[in-house]
């Protein structure tokens, strides 16, 4: 079994339901996120477009975070999920530095690394991840990549030529796919990030682990 995720960006409407569901399910502390939805605006008024991209851990087959972790706190489960043992983590932040997707953070409450686990605890009980359940348009598709009859395998099959991963050149082989993605949505260097400006807050960076 190889669990994977797929997001159809054409369906996502940026409601952030997945983001909130994840926060609630996993009790993710304030100022940190396992899953987030990034808005990127393209064009000049009136020819403008807003894109929404849910970003979470890619559960890579060749995960740099697993490789760099000195104590195997980050480890693979048999179903392919890259899981984290917070009791073992020493908080060296090597994984935060190694992850090419910025998906790992230092939990300010436990002072250990944390990230999306594809809701491994729910999956173990044969439930879907919280973000999948919350999505009102079924933009999040989760399932077994090794099973050709699973929804995710069928979706990938039907959208061949239009399935992307983030930063394929890193050789991480992510198990997180996007359909209808593009350079603007998947490449952080393809959009400008204005310092001190976003829709609802002027805070753009946070101290790691909750302290300077």
């Amino acid at each position: 079994m190889q669990l994977g995720f797929l997001v159809d960006l054409h369906l996502c409407m940026g409601c952030k339901g997945c983001e909130i569901a994840c926060k609630v399910e996993n009790e993710v502390p304030l100022s940190t996120w396992r899953l987030r939805v990034k808005y990127v605006d393209v064009g000049t008024f009136p020819e403008t477009k807003r894109t929404f991209t849910p970003l979470r851990c890619n559960h890579c087959e060749n995960a740099p975070c697993e490789r760099i972790c000195p104590v195997s706190a980050l480890h693979y489960l048999e179903n392919g999920i890259v899981n984290i043992d917070k009791e073992r983590c020493i908080g060296c932040a090597g994984c935060v530095m190694a992850c090419p997707y910025g998906a790992i953070y230092i939990d300010p409450q436990t002072q250990t690394a944390d990230k999306c686990t594809y809701c491994a605890h729910r999956v173990a009980s044969s439930m879907m991840p919280a973000c999948v359940v919350a999505c009102p348009v079924q933009a999040n598709i989760f399932g077994d990549l090794d099973d050709p009859t699973s929804n995710i395998s069928k979706y990938i099959s039907h959208n061949q030529g239009n399935v992307q991963v983030r930063k394929p050149e890193k050789g991480t082989n992510p198990h997180h796919y996007y359909v209808n993605g593009g350079n603007v949505t998947l490449n952080p260097l393809a959009s400008q990030r204005e310092e001190g400006h976003s829709l609802f807050t002027k805070i753009t960076t946070l101290p790691v682990g909750g302290h300077h």
């Binding site: 100022s31 996120w33 987030r36 990034k38 808005y39 990127v40 605006d41 393209v42 064009g43 000049t44 020819e47 807003r50 894109t51 932040a93 935060v96 530095m97 910025g102 953070y105 230092i106 603007v184 393809a190 959009s191 400008q192 990030r193 204005e194 976003s198 829709l199 609802f200 807050t201 805070i203 753009t204 960076t205 946070l206 101290p207 790691v208």
Partner: peptide, 17 residues
């Protein structure tokens, strides 16, 4: 028109090391 700007995102981590 060709440029893209992040208009809403969470605060990203600062200096890690």
């Amino acid at each position: 028109a060709t440029n893209a700007v992040v208009t809403l995102d969470v605060a990203i981590p600062g200096i890690v090391w």
